[in-house]
């Protein structure tokens, strides 16, 4: 059953596109294009949820797909753009790791995730493709968090990780129970808002949102 849904051509295409959108984030040096790529990624995730909902005929998953579309693909990118516009930062992603090496590392992470999922071999009945994509998203999200200077990019990194987990959950178990799923959406949204407040506060106190500045508390 699950092979039918997750292994279908359509799914494979969308999952590949999700990976492409992640590499768009890795490869771009402008904040706006990162946010746009994140929006596309979330939209594709909503499509995945939509397809799963359509093939299983479960009403709950339709709601989840709709929420993904509204919250992650529209609202959160909008909040990001609002923050970028309001704090008037230089609209470049400042990097610790250059773009070519970032993409190389991203590629390596995808390969590692793929082999890890193969080797664990506990999810044999499910498409290992979507699970390894989910693992890749989590690891690339982490990599983005540590390799970019701007506080906004750390927020984005967390959200990419969260997207990865969402993909994992939907391919493992068709998502969590609705109540839990709603709670997670709520937390993600509030989390983004509060991180936004923190970014404003960082900008006001340090007159920059480079996390380089945040290095005084040690020992």
């Amino acid at each position: 059953m699950s092979e039918l849904i997750l292994g279908s051509r359509m799914m494979q295409l969308i999952i590949a596109l999700i990976l492409v959108s992640t590499f768009l984030i890795l490869g771009s040096t402008r904040l706006y294009s990162c946010v746009r790529a994140f929006g596309i990624q979330s939209f594709l995730l909503a499509c995945v949820a939509g397809i799963v909902a359509f093939s299983t005929g479960k009403f709950d998953i339709y709601i989840v797909a709709l929420l993904t579309l509204v919250i992650k693909a529209a609202l959160i990118p909008y909040i990001f753009i609002y923050i970028i516009r309001e704090i008037k930062v230089k609209r470049e992603v400042e990097l610790y790791v250059s773009v070519p090496s970032s993409i190389m590392i991203g590629g390596v992470l995808v390969v590692i995730s793929y082999y890890l999922i193969r080797s664990i071999n506990i999810m044999s009945e499910l498409s290992s493709l979507s699970l390894s994509a989910s693992m890749s998203l989590v690891s690339i999200g982490l990599f983005i968090m540590i390799s970019r200077k701007k506080a906004i990019m750390q927020m984005l990194g967390i959200l990419i990780m969260e997207n990865g987990l969402f993909l994992g959950a939907i391919s493992l178990t068709y998502g969590m129970p609705l109540l839990v799923e709603l709670g997670i959406f709520f937390d993600v949204l509030i989390g983004v808002l509060i991180m936004g407040i923190l970014v404003f506060r960082i900008n006001r106190t340090f007159e920059s949102i480079d996390t380089d500045m945040l290095k005084t508390l040690i020992g």
């Binding site: 968090m145 990780m161 994992g168 997670i184 506060r201 960082i202 340090f206 005084t216 508390l217």
Partner: peptide
Amino acid sequence: SRKSSVEAAWKYMIICTVGITFALF
């Protein structure tokens, strides 16, 4: 609004959210 509190809050937020993402997995 001290510099050090803002720094602490940001670190707290980022590290704990990433941690908790693993817990979600």
